Amino acid sequence: MEHVPVDVEARQIVRWLLAEQRTKTFDLLLNVTRSFEPTELSAAEEGQMGDEERQELSEINEVGLLEVMPRKEPSRWILRIRVIDDIGPRMPDDEPVPTEDEEIDLETFNEEFIVADRGYVEVSAEAQDRAADGELGRLIEAIVTNSHKPNN
């Protein structure tokens, strides 16, 4: 798979996908999940704590992931939005965070990650070959122009 540059805001992509779910012009497959990742405390946070606190605490990121693929051949190309939100430190006796990815719908992803405007947002894409790159380019053009007409 080759990396394809995407210069479109996540908000615009999600807004277009929400409208696309109603029109169903493009035959797209969406995979939308939320997960939690433990990370290390920042140096600034560690400097403000004692040794015992530092050993007990961990930082948690909430990660929203939206993957858009062609339904008929999902491995041809993928358009991905990944949002990483630092939700803060956790103590060992805090309620455990889920270890498995949780499937969510596009509306939930939009409300919790895009509209809420939280965290670091990364938009990326990959295509299997030049033909797939062309298909992906047509989808991105439809998103940019807010069109729901396939231009095959």
Rank of each mutant, 00 (worst) to 15 (best):
R130T: 15
D133P: 01
I81H: 03
T145E: 15
A127C: 08
L17R: 03
H3Y: 09
A19C: 12
V144K: 12
P89T: 00
D94E: 02
P74M: 07
L66Y: 04
T145Y: 05
L57C: 04
S75E: 14
S75R: 13
L29C: 09
L79W: 11
I81C: 01
L66R: 02
F109K: 04
D129L: 09
T108S: 08
I13P: 00
H3C: 07
I140K: 00
N61M: 14
M91D: 11
G88P: 01
V68D: 06
F109V: 00
P150C: 08
R71W: 03
L28Y: 02
A131N: 13
N151C: 13
R82Y: 01
G88I: 06
E59Y: 02
D101W: 04
R138Y: 06
Q21H: 09
S124L: 13
L106V: 06
M1K: 04
E122L: 13
V83D: 02
F36T: 04
G88S: 07
P70L: 07
K149C: 10
M1I: 10
T39N: 08
F109R: 03
S147W: 07
I87C: 06
P98I: 05
P150V: 15
A127R: 07
V144Y: 03
G64F: 01
I84N: 04
I143M: 13
I13E: 01
F109H: 00
E67S: 13
L29Q: 15
S147I: 04
N151Y: 11
D133W: 06
F36K: 11
A19N: 13
L139A: 07
D86R: 07
I114W: 02
E46W: 00
G50R: 11
R34C: 04
E73T: 06
S75D: 15
E67K: 10
L106E: 14
I143W: 05
P89H: 02
E95N: 14
L139G: 04
D94K: 01
V144D: 07
R71M: 05
G119R: 00
M91G: 05
V8N: 05
D105N: 14
I84A: 08
A131V: 13
L139P: 12
I13K: 02
R82G: 00
D129P: 12
L139V: 09
V83C: 05
I13Y: 00
P70R: 12
A44H: 12
E53W: 02
N146F: 03
L17C: 02
R82C: 06
V115D: 15
E102Y: 11
L57F: 10
T33Q: 08
L17Q: 03
D27K: 11
S35N: 13
E52M: 13
V63A: 02
I87V: 10
F36N: 10
H3V: 09
R138D: 01
I60F: 08
S35M: 10
